[in-house]
Design a protein around this nucleic acid. Structure first.
Lengths: 196, 196
DNA sequence: TATTATTAAACGATCGTTTGAATAATAGAG
DNA sequence: CTCTATTATTCAAACGATCGTTTAATAATA
């Protein structure tokens, strides 16, 4: 088994197991056995359990660092927000474990939180704040709204939908076919509110 | 030290430590030492670590089960929603650890998830859905909105604000003095949207 | 032959739980 | 009220299991 095989196997398997049970909920022996490699390979390639977890988290949050690209492909603030929501849904569909690491690090931070998670999330929030401020200067949004509170509200709408999936499976259809309707729905509330 | 002292000490200390580091991130020895009681008391009073964790979670989610009282004190659907948001903020202020157990169980469920957490959250979501449906029948809300998606959006706005606190401390003021403005703000967006 | 990759085995430390003795608290009988 | 029998509580110590890591030997590769 070549270098890359072993490394890749470990990262892939560890992603699954760490996501399922958290950093402290999995042992290096479980990971090694599930990956079909020798226990010592974790220390050999990642210099320990923490190193492996860091590699997993780094890979997971790489996608979050690409969100600022939205700035370059769209000009209209409201459409930028829609792109953000759309990218968020696509991200969670493509990577079912990201949200777990996301919230797990928020509630029980490891050393990776400061170095990887916090900068990544902060970058996204800052982009959204800038977008709203831009919309304000173009007289597009209501002037009495606070930029930070407003964009956190938008981010909350879409993220909470996925976070609550384990308890709402019997209440609504979480299939990807409904994603487009969900996106429209959230943008609709965000833009126009619920009052008749 | 009487029965209740020991029990109460353990629950109070365990709440703090479990919230900080998660179920697998704390040992019974750490809890016992921090509580100033003997290690064996955990098995004696709670028949083990899991039992203690269950007792902690039970106490934490008791407050969530009282939310349906909103139904009895208010009639107007929009004001019921505001009461929910208000109660949520008050809950997190009074109990800074609830949200941690909340999201920790959502992402890395223990046996307590099915028995304690899921029923509690589901009850709240169902109350909100009923409230929106009620408002729809009174012609108060836009008819093209899906009840479940809509109330999850509202719940997301307020919950996500607190969930993201660790990364937004430098971006906004999380002090309780701003709570009233936050509530008004979220209800404002929910009711009327952001467009001018 | 020199370097890299993999292995089984062992390391000390800590895990959650249990044991059995010691202590404290309580209740009933005189 | 005192003594005693019973129960409830607390304790230090030990249980086997598992934790993450390291070692030294072997296999593969260039």
């Amino acid at each position: 088994m070549a270098d890359t095989d072993c490394r890749a196997n470990l990262i892939r398997t560890a992603t699954l197991l760490f996501a399922e049970s958290g950093y402290n909920g999995v042992s290096v022996r479980q990971i090694a056995r599930a990956a079909g490699v020798n226990l010592a390979m974790i220390s050999y390639y990642f210099s320990g359990k923490e190193g492996l977890y860091g590699a997993v988290l780094n890979e997971q949050f790489a996608v979050l660092r690409r969100i600022p690209e939205i700035k370059t492909v769209e000009n209209d603030p409201l459409k930028k927000f829609e792109l953000y929501v759309r990218a968020t849904v696509a991200r969670y569909r493509k990577n079912p474990f990201l949200l777990r690491f996301y919230t797990s690090e928020l509630t029980n931070p490891t050393p990776c939180f400061e170095s990887i998670v916090k900068p990544a999330i902060k970058g996204v929030v800052q982009l959204l704040i800038d977008t709203f401020t831009d919309g304000l200067s173009h007289d597009q949004f209501r002037k009495d709204l606070d930029p930070t509170d407003t964009v956190l509200a938008l981010a909350g709408m879409i993220n909470f939908y996925f976070l609550l999936e384990p308890v709402t499976t019997e209440l609504l259809d979480h299939s990807a076919e409904r994603d487009e309707a969900l996106i429209q729905h959230i943008m609709d509330i965000f833009a126009k509110g619920v009052l008749k």
